[in-house]
Design a protein around this nucleic acid. Sequence first.
DNA 1: TTTTAACAAAATATCTACATTTTTGGTTTC
DNA 2: GAAACCAAAAATGTAGATATTTTGTTAAAA
Lengths: 232, 232
Amino acid sequence: MATNDEKNNLVNLAYVALKRDITEGVYRPGDKLLMRGLKERYEIGSGPMREALSRLVSEHLVTAISQRGFRVASMSIEELTDIYFARAHLEAMITELAVKLGDESWEAGVIASTHTLSKVTQLNSAEDMLGLWDARHKAFHLAIAQGCGSAKLLELRLTMLDQVERYRQLWLRHTVFSAEALEAKREEHRQLVEVLLSRDHVKARDMMFEHMTGPVSIISEIIEARGLAEHE
Amino acid sequence: MATNDEKNNLVNLAYVALKRDITEGVYRPGDKLLMRGLKERYEIGSGPMREALSRLVSEHLVTAISQRGFRVASMSIEELTDIYFARAHLEAMITELAVKLGDESWEAGVIASTHTLSKVTQLNSAEDMLGLWDARHKAFHLAIAQGCGSAKLLELRLTMLDQVERYRQLWLRHTVFSAEALEAKREEHRQLVEVLLSRDHVKARDMMFEHMTGPVSIISEIIEARGLAEHE
DNA sequence: TTTTAACAAAATATCTACATTTTTGGTTTC
DNA sequence: GAAACCAAAAATGTAGATATTTTGTTAAAA
């Protein structure tokens, strides 16, 4: 038996592939997703394809109208603002809990992932560097959040992360490819960890909220510049 | 054209019907959901049925294992505790925001729904009374939450409400059918509204958190008494 | 006798191909 | 210019083929 641990049916493969294609911009916001094309691209029948689409609908990456098929969910400044507002509040709340409840192994995890993140330097390609920094940055924030001790809260957090992903990708390139921006983030993280370990939950909460809302203005500009929002 | 406004395809009908059947206990936690039976009961082919199941999976009401079909998600004291913990924190946070940001029309909405809820009295059948109180109680809490001004937060809130529904149903019968418990809730609501309107967001936050966690011990007892949890 | 292993049959899940229904977009008619 | 119509395109649904898992049986090993 190969390395297929859990779910390896066609629906899953199509789901993962389409999700990637949407977040990577192969299909752009508002694009119509024609069955014909999808079937061809993912080599799958309509039934399973619909199921995969269905999942993305529940993640708000795709919208569906009965009898009129599927579209890539549109992006807008309004959604950007709201989603980051909600996410920042959620993350801040989780952070407060983590500071209150986190034990020694939580602290260890935070410190370890901070270190790992700080070690990302120029690699073969800039693209590799992007991927690695992103992965470790996510791991860093996850390590913090895990201290809250609630599986459901962590799940909610993931929901938001999924929904924000397309917007976040825009910010990511901006940040990672600017030595200046990257250094600023590094410093923010350093201060954040300091406060976390000092167990000042009010300060930690506020700081995390600020940390999470920072990207909004940058992303806003990029969206307007590229005309990504609400194209008729 | 009839009253069908939006989505009236077979998938939706099956989704709604199955969801109701699960929350109402027609299918019990852990039950295997056989395609054969489902197809028959909801008069639908496997394709659409899978799609409906798929949606319930994303709402955590059903679990799926590749090649082994679907089951009603199990219930457990652990999940009950975690889900109410997460929900209480979320609702408390939203309440705090609502108190900070809610405008006059928000206040009006809260007062109106408080009044409407208080007017529920004995009806034809006890079952009718249950449904009406539940609907108005939900409307009351929604009216409060809407003050937060964030569509995404309200959406997260609904996610949690869906996930908690099976547990909440247990509490509902216990509360509505006991004049004593019902009166206690009424008083809690009265105090809650008082604090909301006084704009004391810290107190409102804490009070909402308490209000939301109250049912846990009651539900816990019911689950143990009925042996609903994790049946082998 | 009890346990383990091997296998075959039945039940079940998954997928494809095609049939049906609905929408879309262009053309004609008033 | 608006309404009515029609054909092409697309979405939705069904039936049945294929693949996988489960179950029951038998026989060998402990």
